[in-house]
Design a protein around this nucleic acid. Sequence first.
DNA 1: CGAAGTCTTGAATCGAATCAACGGAAGTGG
DNA 2: CCACTTCCGTTGATTCGATTCAAGACTTCG
Lengths: 231, 231
Amino acid sequence: MSRLDRSLIAGAPAFAGLSPEALDDILSRAQIMRLPKGETAFRQGEPADRFFLLLHGRLRVTRINAEGAQILVRFIAPNDMFGVAMAIGAVTYPGTATAAVDSLALSWPNAAWTNLIAAYPSLAVKAMQSLGARLQDTQDRVLDLATHNVEQRIAGAVLKLARQAGRKTEEGVLIDIPLSRQDLAEMTGATLHTVSRTLSAWEAKGLVDCGRRRVVVRDEQGLTAIAKHAE
Amino acid sequence: MSRLDRSLIAGAPAFAGLSPEALDDILSRAQIMRLPKGETAFRQGEPADRFFLLLHGRLRVTRINAEGAQILVRFIAPNDMFGVAMAIGAVTYPGTATAAVDSLALSWPNAAWTNLIAAYPSLAVKAMQSLGARLQDTQDRVLDLATHNVEQRIAGAVLKLARQAGRKTEEGVLIDIPLSRQDLAEMTGATLHTVSRTLSAWEAKGLVDCGRRRVVVRDEQGLTAIAKHAE
DNA sequence: CGAAGTCTTGAATCGAATCAACGGAAGTGG
DNA sequence: CCACTTCCGTTGATTCGATTCAAGACTTCG
């Protein structure tokens, strides 16, 4: 008798197409964990001994370098796997995953990874594809940093977030994650000052509507135009 | 009777630990291809129908965006696999691979990938790890672009190349790939003008010795100091 | 040899960081 | 509930790194 229902993970792309028995098997090795806002699932540099699946909420993944400079690597959405350091041969977590809102995750010990991909090879294929997609994304980000100016990059980041975590309201598309100026700065390689000025200018033009840790996109077209050709 | 000798691929990390029979099996499905300097193995956007292993030489992988801006993604060294778009679920090649010097590669049709990883699961594990390493590398590059100035980034790029493709000479470590100012600019998100000025300044200080498409590192220590804390 | 490709260097410009100060919102504790 | 602190955001002034614009020199190659 399992304490966890298989419907918890049935929606995760990584487990798509697996039989109910397989899902139960996978779940039986999992441990559930609550992550109140601000808690970390793991920290950069810690020995990577578990991997995770987000059930509910949002996590921010950050990476910091020797000099203390930090970037925001990505946001993790429900049904995403994360912390799969073992699969890529890393012994420590390469970043820190913090709950941006109250969240819920499953976790498995690393030892389960080898067993699971042996038993369910489609899992390895899916993991590889999601890793590939992240590599593409990250390379696009390099291209973006190397070739666009700050305003274009902020526009791109906001649009991406609106697609990933947007919620339609009567005023526009609300980005449904607490998002500070500092967060946007760490996503785009700018300073919070420049982000603040840029958002203020956009607000004056009616492109966005924003407040404390909150951004609403009112004119997606307009932002797209900015992201494309600077002008 | 095979035309290709198994020693060709025995040195590739992806095939490490496989039996001679396995190597012969893998080789039997491969096709050898000469790539004179300047030729491409594949171009960005083309349907990805084959994957590759570099036997000899060096390839430059570039990626270009809609506006025509280009970055240099990486250099491929002998024994590296490349163009594994199929494994990551991409239908087209995400970049262009050009021979930087006369090169030699093996290639397999995509269909072979599924067969090979089914027959030799260690291949999938290795592929995943190398993909993971590239993701780490690319994320480090984002961090670098977001937090270091141009001089630091150029120093970092030169040091990395010296490690990857350095050849000791009596004058210092020669980067054994034709490397133009434009190449360094595309690696670091700078202009060729700034790269030229920077190298000139370093040459005056005795840190490097450089010429047309040629860079020799004379003072690795000094460059490391620049890469770390700008001054 | 001419032509194309590569590199250098100066001068002017501009985007974004830095420096600096302040206002307001949210959380904390008595 | 109010005072206090902390966090988050805004906006101006200034500075500086790097691009852009421009012209010329050197190399290599067909």
